[in-house]
Design a binder for these strands. Structure first.
Lengths: 372, 372
DNA sequence: CTGAAAGCGCTTACAG
DNA sequence: CTGAAAGCGCTTACAG
């Protein structure tokens, strides 16, 4: 351990004094683009370097940022920090930020605090913002545009007026799922959708990803000429808002949604597609409880590929959303905008999804009570 | 949207000019502790406030920090950002930081970059550091002590020379597990431990949490007078280090570890305790593959309570580590130190664990091939 | 090559 | 009550 007791942080002036040169010289030697503008003779440079090392000098990144007006710090605004995919986005973002010399700050935002949070972003002089936010982003864009901070939204269902939007190609995913299931002979396919719109019939969030997938499912079923009887789409209940911005998985509602499908008057579907993995896993529990084997009696498919999908038994067949890649892309887009002129014009990146065949999907059984 | 085109960020001088007062006055009105030292008459105050609002003024938090020397920004150093529990720690830390007016920065650190990362922490003038790091933390403490930055380590197996250490009370957890299992009549209990020491026999990390739990298990078994035949402790293989700091779950090694237990010459254990949930879940897959029912034929217990534990079927009985609470506590400890004199003296907080009885553990079966 | 000076945006004694 | 001045730690034209 260094035995020198340091009272306060060593500054550039201290180093200058020790090396017997001016602050300017120290700055030139220690600056990023050393030698680009001015050249310092090696003797002086060494003296400065050594003094800095001896004193354990650490440049003050904040002071630098104040001077340059650039923080190279990017904010990640998340409304549901507990949700695994949003963490995966962050992991990707973190990696990319590291590589590009940026740092990442996490700001958790529940709906009531959105205004404060975006304000905080500009006070922090963030170089860019990644937003994973349900609901209206008007406040965010107002503030960010005013402060000329580029923003990219991730996992956002609908196009927006400003900024870069990075979203997964769920239509592709749904297509894969239906190809897979029809290949296995399934024709009676149910869907468990997100219950969000029912919870909040007034403030309907058009960006609700569960409902978006439900729409896609309906379209793709129709496109394939597959029947979709009334009641073949049910809903679980997910709390997405609230002070603590928690994702509560209400198992009883997923259970009810599954049951409605299993006891459908026209006979149960031979396969159920769920708007996300958590729901699918809960649905499987319910199927087991009813004595149904997965996938022999019924196939189940999820969406996202959360870690549990791989760990469960049987492991879940699911659409893989490339969360980390989306996070990486978000950073790349942002960084690219940082050094160019601010331009809030909207663009969209559709990131391809893939389908992972694991063990919860298989050949359609012959249903005895089928009316076909 | 605000229709005024802003060229650059509005500064305090701009507001002062608009309000017809000096910068000092603006500062006084807008500062945190307004009115504590000086009192500004309401008329002036209103003028300033209105000017600031009209112009969309946002104080520069960086400049403030340079001045005050305090950033109220805490860094979270994680070596395996992909691992769910470390994300949970962050969620807790984030909440607590918000409440206390601090912000959180995430720094991912793979082993080779540790030096750079800790240096970055001091250059950023972080107010504190939360470290979730395997291996030696010498570099970290050298740097942090020099810069007088308080650090708390989380989920660190062994006591250290400096800083606050927050760790879960695994002894308690193991105790619960064995109480539970013996209550159900189990006496032949196996353990799957972390394979880390085997991977890295040279740089043995004494903080390896899997091995620590194994030790605890051995002690508690002995304390209860339960036999632990040679070979009743096996190991999976977890890659914890490497450039990308990934936690790779090598299912084949967990499989092998399970198999070794199932085919033990003295008969298989009636219960297996695993050093973490992922391993337990993988072990269950293997048991199923061998035609064993869980928990009728064999009980399985994990450690951590990751989200998959609840989602799987049967849901996993496990020791719950209070990750979020640990993150919260880390922040609280740090914040408390920020405004007091720097003191690196070591302290330890042992956070209690609990046991969650779910469906993978039950009464011990009568083993036919048992030699008892 | 190197230093004195001005400046980044803020705050805080210190006069008036 | 309010402003001029000095200062936080840094950088960057600008002289010499």
């Amino acid at each position: 351990m260094n035995r020198v007791i340091i009272e306060a942080m060593i500054t550039m002036s201290d180093v200058a004094r020790r090396a017997g040169v001016s602050r300017s010289t120290v700055s030139h030697v220690l600056s990023e683009h050393q030698g680009e503008t001015v050249r310092i003779p090696d003797a002086t440079r060494q003296r400065v370097l050594e003094a800095a090392r001896e004193m354990g000098y650490r440049p003050n990144a904040l002071a630098r940022s104040v001077r340059s007006g650039k923080t190279r710090m990017i904010g990640y605004l998340v409304d549901e920090p507990r949700y695994e995919p949003y963490w995966n986005i962050m992991v990707g973002a973190l990696e990319a930020a590291d590589e590009l010399g940026f740092t990442l700050k996490i700001l958790s935002v529940s709906h009531p605090t959105l205004a404060d949070r975006v304000r905080q972003c500009t006070e922090l002089r963030l170089s860019g913002i990644i937003a994973r936010l349900a609901g209206s982003k008007r406040l965010l864009f107002e503030e960010a545009n005013h402060a000329q901070i580029p923003v990219v939204t991730v996992d956002e269902g609908i196009p927006q007026l400003f900024g870069t939007r990075i979203t997964s190609d769920d239509a592709l995913g749904i297509g894969y799922v239906l190809d897979h299931l029809t290949h296995f002979g399934h024709r009676k396919i149910g869907f468990i959708s997100s219950g969000f719109p029912r919870l909040n019939p007034v403030r309907k969030d058009p960006g609700d990803i569960g409902t978006a997938r439900e729409e896609l499912f309906r379209q793709e079923m129709a496109a394939r000429g597959l029947p979709l009887p009334e009641g073949y789409v049910t809903h679980d209940t997910v709390m997405v808002f609230g002070c603590k911005a928690e994702v509560t998985i209400d198992s009883s509602s997923a259970q009810a949604a599954t049951n409605a499908l299993l006891h459908h008057p026209q006979g149960r579907p031979t396969a159920i597609v769920c708007w996300r993995d958590e729901t699918a896993l809960l649905a499987i529990q319910e199927c087991h409880r009813q004595g149904l084997r997965v996938p022999e009696d019924i196939s189940l498919v999820g969406f996202s590929d959360i870690s549990a999908a791989r760990l469960c038994d049987p492991p879940l067949s699911t659409v893989k959303t490339p969360w980390e890649a989306m996070g990486r892309l978000a950073i790349q887009e942002l960084v690219q905008r940082v050094d160019s002129n601010f331009d809030p014009a909207p663009t969209t990146h559709l990131v391809p999804t893939t389908f992972i065949t694991r063990a919860t999907s298989g050949p359609a059984p012959r249903i005895k009570n089928s009316r076909r």
